[in-house]
Design a protein around this nucleic acid. Structure first.
Lengths: 142, 142
DNA sequence: TCCTTACTGAAAAAATGTTTCATCTAGTCT
DNA sequence: AGACTAGATGAAACATTTTTTCAGTAAGGA
């Protein structure tokens, strides 16, 4: 796993650079979606000269390869998460920010069919994210 | 309907101003989600001195009252739509931008229950939007 | 008509994301 | 190992969206 992303870069003809490694390391360590600025700050602890432009470019690249998922955080920012292979959606904890993934394909089929019949739209894509309280926060906080 | 929003403002102790009327008028006429800048441009046709700050403030106010829904447009911008009462979600046409609403509560309950069991999250809120092709665009375009 | 206070809009600031371009370096070739 | 070259980098400038500040305006009750 630790070298899987590097392998993906190599297989697709991209170079394995210190900047990219720093960003990937941070993403792999994170439990919650990080903004570009947060990625920059944490990435600089691995590679001191890392710049914000490279953060954005690397996120684009990793998104294209399906390794990273962009989510809408509850604070309105975009956050980036390491993504499991396959079709998943994110669920974010409103208290600690922690993220999980879930599969939502099957349960949505019925809904999508109904919406198609009701609205006359052909449905090409969807945006689904859940917000709630993770089990740790439920145990400790409220 | 035409005066319903004004009544809501009045009932909640807010003033009915020319700026607010201009913005509400534009929102009621629109078929597609408008960005703040688009609302400003169109609103100025009704009220020439309208400013962007008032657009944002009025959108916040109308959102609080449940009259307006903020959506994520396919171009990445935030768009604002007049919202029907009750729990609805938006579906946007990727070709002409037109928006519709649909109810998605019931079909989601099963999904939400499953996710709760699988992830241990208590689910408080959700973000669901669909993107596709409206019937007009299907007929004319492709 | 007057008065109070909510409301307004210009300007400046803040936050986020993109473009440009000279420089650097990863990976390859010798 | 050394050199080459295209891909990668990061600073700076730019663009866009949203928020804050504040002096002035006007809605609506008295």
């Amino acid at each position: 796993m630790i070298r899987e992303w590097e392998q993906q870069l190599y297989n697709n003809g991209y170079r394995i650079t210190a900047s990219r490694c720093a960003i990937m390391e941070v993403l792999r360590e994170a439990q919650e979606p990080l903004s570009a600025q947060e990625l920059l700050a944490r990435g600089r602890q691995h590679h001191r000269t890392l710049g914000i432009v490279t953060v954005y470019r690397t996120l684009d690249l990793l998104s294209e390869l399906g390794l990273v998922r962009r989510v809408h955080r509850s604070d309105g920012c975009h956050g980036y998460l390491s993504a499991s292979p396959g079709h998943h959606h994110a669920i974010l904890c409103l208290h600690c920010g922690r993220a999980s993934e879930f599969q939502g394909q099957d349960d949505l089929i019925e809904l999508l069919g109904r919406v198609r019949r009701e609205t006359g739209f052909e449905i090409d894509d969807h945006l689904l994210q859940l917000y709630g309280t993770c089990s740790e926060c439920r145990a400790h906080d409220v």
